[in-house]
C-alpha cells in the first residue's frame, strides 16, 4: 500500500492508503476528522469541501495520493482555539445552518469565495454555491451568512 504524506490543519501527517482511497476517506477514517461529510456519490453536493493548497476542493473527488505534499485544511482547522473564524461566526449569527450536515462544506466553499471577492453580491454568492446543496435552510440564511462573513473578513477580523 502506498504511503501518503500531507499537511492537514497545519500538522504533518502520513498514512498508508490503498490507491483507491479518496481524500475524504483518508480524512474521516484514518485521521478521524469527521467534520468533512459525504452527501453524494456523484460529486454534486459539496458536503465534502476542504481546501487543498488554499483552494476549495471536493474531497470525494480526489484520491488521497493526489494530495502528496499538499496543505489540506478542513473545517476542524478553521477556529483558532476557542476563537471562531469570522465565517463560522457569521453562520451562527445569521442562522445559516439547521441540521449542520452541509455546513462544513458550505463554510469551506464560502471562505474560498470571500478570499477571492471581499464583497460578493447576493447573486455572486448564489452562483458560487452551484456545487453545494443544502436541503434545510432554503439558502436564504446561508447567503446572508456568507455576505456577512465576507464583510467581517474584509474588515480584518481574520482570513
Amino acid at each position: 500500500m502506498p504511503t501518503v504524506n500531507m499537511n492537514v490543519n497545519g500538522e504533518a501527517v502520513s498514512g498508508e492508503v490503498e490507491a483507491r482511497t479518496l481524500l475524504v476517506q483518508f480524512l474521516r477514517e484514518k485521521l478521524r476528522l469527521t467534520g468533512t461529510h459525504v452527501g453524494c456519490d456523484t460529486s454534486q453536493c459539496g458536503a465534502c469541501v476542504v481546501h487543498v493548497d488554499g483552494v476549495s476542493a471536493k474531497s470525494c473527488t480526489m484520491l488521497a495520493v493526489q494530495c502528496e505534499g499538499a496543505d489540506v485544511t478542513t473545517i476542524e482547522g478553521l477556529a483558532d482555539g476557542d476563537a471562531l473564524h469570522p465565517m463560522q461566526e457569521a453562520f451562527r449569527d445569521n442562522h445559516g445552518l439547521q441540521c449542520g450536515f452541509c455546513t462544513p462544506g458550505m463554510i469551506m466553499s464560502a471562505l474560498d469565495l470571500a478570499r477571492r471577492n471581499s464583497a460578493p453580491s447576493e447573486q455572486e454568492v448564489r452562483e458560487w454555491l452551484e456545487g453545494n446543496i443544502c436541503r434545510c435552510t432554503g439558502y436564504h440564511n446561508i447567503v446572508k451568512s456568507i455576505m456577512a462573513g465576507a464583510r467581517a473578513m474584509a474588515a480584518g477580523q481574520g482570513g
Partner: peptide, 18 residues
C-alpha cells in the same frame, strides 16, 4: 442564537457515520 451551532460549525457534530 442556537446553542447547538458551535459543534456543527467547528466540525464536531456526531452523526451516525462519524
Amino acid at each position: 442564537k442556537r446553542k447547538e451551532d458551535y459543534r456543527f460549525i467547528t466540525g464536531q457534530g456526531a452523526y451516525t457515520d462519524d
